[in-house]
Amino acid sequence: MLALLSSGHHRGVGIQSRATATALLLLLLVLTLGVVSANEQNQAQLNCGEDDSPKGQCRNGPEALKLKLIAIASILATSVLGVCLPVFSRSVPALHPDSNIFVVVKAFASGVILATGYMHVLPDSFEFLTSDCLPEVPWSKFPFTTFVAMLSAVATQMVDSFAMAYYRKIHAKPSTGSHGKGAVKDVVAVEGGEVHAHAHGGFGQDLGDDNSRLLRHRVVAQVLEMGIVVHSVVIGLSMGASDNACTIKPLVAALCFHQFFEGMGLGGCILQGEFSLKVKAIMVFFFSITTPGGIALGIGLSNTYSESSPTALIVVGLLNACSAGLLNYMALVDLIALDFMGPKLQGSMKLQVFGYVALLLGAGGMALMAKWA
């Protein structure tokens, strides 16, 4: 197996990725506080958030709080279980990344992530940014949701491309060897732990297919987690701030399903990235804690936070649009296309059929969850 990154660079990349996720969480907290402040200023003038429908009878603060505490525990457990199953499945031969079962399960999880972007996050952004509580100009005159999602997808491609180019550059340094000036050494660690060095002439031919594939998996795992973190915190915040028990009950089950299979998709990417145990633990922690943390934050702000305030609608709507563009790009380009156009699935028509069936089942199941979440 190729050891693409040295231990120093490896730890640096993982910590940098986690620092980015931490910055996102802090940014969301600051934005939420801004929403609270704006809501307090405008609450006397806005009646958009008042619920006079029969659903308003479901509003029960104490009952909703019990359900939210149950949600924190259950979502945390299913998140940890979902993301850890692939990460620590290397000891199980049937779940090895090269096995057919792993490929099919990952296709199912990729379908879940794809449906999350199209069926959950994108419609939520449309709903927020076209709300009657926002001024007609400019929010009803321009499709901000699709525009921001498009820019987010392009930005994700840029991050993907620049990250690949950067890591290729820093890990393809020319060195003088027996093959002449400019030769490059690739370090290859075999299963038995023995290390061999292979010299290749030229600067542009330093990374082999396996090397590039490993690098690709690492970039995909880190970028995918950033998109999931944004989406998860927004979902948790909305749920934590709600006191509608009738809405929360089905939402708990839907989010458990969502987090479990989304975690399996992310866990598969983490496993294929061959990260160190420390980096794996950090990535698992951030994925698992974001939705429960968002719920806890929403509970703390439930007395002041209002989804119907203009600032909250704009901030959450734009964040959802960004997350949708990122998730849709990652699901289609870096997960589905990468696997289905790869040599393993291209070499077996039967495995392709099973993969597409699993993909459709995952996407269909997650699309069905849109009825409740």
Score class of each variant (00 low, 15 high):
residue 88 F to G: 01
residue 142 F to Q: 06
residue 87 V to R: 00
residue 74 S to I: 09
residue 139 W to V: 01
residue 32 T to V: 02
residue 46 L to Y: 05
residue 132 D to K: 06
residue 126 F to G: 05
residue 81 L to G: 00
residue 51 D to T: 02
residue 104 V to S: 04
residue 50 E to R: 08
residue 84 C to Q: 08
residue 22 T to K: 09
residue 93 P to G: 05
residue 140 S to T: 04
residue 19 A to D: 02
residue 130 T to E: 07
residue 79 S to K: 01
residue 123 P to W: 00
residue 131 S to Y: 07
residue 27 L to K: 11
residue 105 V to T: 11
residue 136 E to L: 13
residue 141 K to S: 08
residue 102 F to T: 01
residue 69 L to A: 12
residue 130 T to W: 01
residue 29 L to R: 08
residue 73 A to C: 11
residue 142 F to D: 03
residue 141 K to P: 00
residue 73 A to I: 13
residue 87 V to A: 00
residue 93 P to N: 06
residue 85 L to W: 10
residue 44 A to C: 09
residue 68 K to W: 10
residue 38 A to V: 04
residue 36 V to M: 09
residue 29 L to H: 08
residue 25 L to H: 10
residue 138 P to V: 04
residue 26 L to R: 11
residue 100 N to A: 11
residue 29 L to V: 10
residue 41 Q to M: 09
residue 99 S to P: 12
residue 57 Q to L: 14
residue 132 D to G: 11
residue 134 L to M: 06
residue 57 Q to N: 14
residue 22 T to C: 11
residue 41 Q to H: 10
residue 62 P to K: 15
residue 23 A to R: 03
residue 28 L to R: 01
residue 36 V to N: 06
residue 46 L to V: 15
residue 126 F to S: 09
residue 137 V to T: 05
residue 27 L to S: 12
residue 138 P to E: 03
residue 136 E to H: 14
residue 11 R to I: 15
residue 55 K to P: 05
residue 23 A to V: 12
residue 66 K to Q: 12
residue 103 V to G: 03
residue 136 E to W: 08
residue 11 R to G: 14
residue 107 A to E: 05
residue 45 Q to R: 14
residue 114 L to H: 07
residue 31 L to K: 00
residue 17 S to D: 10
residue 29 L to C: 10
residue 38 A to D: 08
residue 24 L to H: 10
residue 110 S to K: 14
residue 134 L to C: 06
residue 136 E to D: 13
residue 76 L to W: 01
residue 92 V to I: 13
residue 81 L to H: 02
residue 27 L to Q: 07
residue 39 N to T: 12
residue 89 S to H: 05
residue 64 A to F: 02
residue 113 I to N: 02
residue 44 A to R: 12
residue 91 S to E: 09
residue 70 I to H: 04
residue 68 K to S: 12
residue 127 E to K: 07
residue 100 N to M: 05
residue 53 S to H: 03
residue 27 L to V: 12
residue 140 S to Y: 04
residue 59 R to K: 04
residue 29 L to K: 04
